[in-house]
């Protein structure tokens, strides 16, 4: 009889679960994997209609501009939203076996990250088809993706750890995400809209900062703002570390509070 609970064991468990979840998710809908692509495109069409046509805020190449902002943004929102319930939704499982609770939000983070890589690959294809020349600055994309996944993990662990204790918070988090949506420059050119004196404040929002960098490297042939990226990475890592300790501390408390 073997009994082991090493890190490797849990990594295997997460891999297996993520792969199974992705397959099950695809099997649930008729269009299965196509939804990964349709969803950002549908969002894009909505914002194109509202901001590009009705409000006449569209800039040149507005669809490309929207997509490069929306795709990373949707990744962020979705993972945070899915992480909120990651612990309480697995209450049946938690009552059955003891597993380190950090595994649960980690599964959500990995699952959404796998989807995102597919979507990002298609975004690049779309950009090329739309006539954007791939430039050397595109090579910085993996670094941006890594920065974002760390930021996402930090926020996801935070909400996953707190929401089981205070379920009411999920409403506030949804509101906060909506506010962040308007403050991240997804559907407008920041320089045209935000006053100069507010720019620093605006870029304190890590998502606004990341979106600016995504557009700089993909659309405008510019290298990213390394300093900003390093700050985001370091802060995220600190947060991830702290939250993993917090979740571990409450490992045996979660089964009681989600009862």
């Amino acid at each position: 009889m073997k009994k082991k609970q090493s890190l490797k064991h849990y990594i295997q468990l997460i891999q297996l679960k993520v792969a199974a979840n992705l397959r099950a998710e695809a099997a649930r809908n008729y269009l299965s994997y196509l939804w990964w692509i349709f969803e950002p495109i549908l969002h894009m069409l909505v914002y194109y209609f509202v901001f590009g046509m009705l409000l006449a805020r569209g800039t040149e190449n507005f669809s490309i501009f929207l997509l490069t902002g929306l795709i990373p943004w949707l990744w962020f929102v979705k993972t945070i939203t899915n992480s909120m319930g990651s612990i309480s939704q697995n209450k049946g499982l938690m009552m059955q076996v003891h597993i380190p609770k950090i595994v649960l939000p980690t599964i959500v983070i990995c699952q959404d990250a796998v989807k995102q890589t597919v979507v990002v690959a298609l975004l690049l294809l779309f950009l090329v088809l739309a006539g954007i020349e791939p430039s050397w600055s595109w090579s910085a994309l993996p670094l941006l993706l890594i920065t974002q996944i760390l930021l996402i993990a930090a926020c996801a662990y935070l909400v996953a750890a707190v929401v089981p204790f205070l379920p009411d918070l999920s409403f506030l988090i949804s509101m906060g995400l909506q506010m962040l949506f308007f403050c991240s420059g997804i559907f407008f050119k920041v320089e045209d809209v935000i006053l100069d004196k507010h720019l620093n404040l605006f870029y304190m929002n890590p998502m606004a900062n990341l979106l600016k960098n995504y557009r700089n490297i993909l659309l405008y042939n510019q290298w990213p703002d390394w300093q900003a990226l390093i700050i985001i990475v370091v802060l995220s890592l600190v947060f991830i570390f702290v939250m993993s300790l917090v979740i571990r501390k409450f490992d045996h408390v979660y089964p009681r509070v989600v009862l």
Partner: peptide, 27 residues
């Protein structure tokens, strides 16, 4: 117990492997 911690969306086979692993057994 009666409420087994299975994931309803996944197949029985994968659920067996997952729950075995969650019980701490090697894959």
């Amino acid at each position: 117990s009666l409420q087994v911690g299975f994931d309803p969306e996944l197949s029985g086979r994968i659920n067996v492997v997952l729950s075995g692993m969650m019980l701490g057994f090697d894959r």
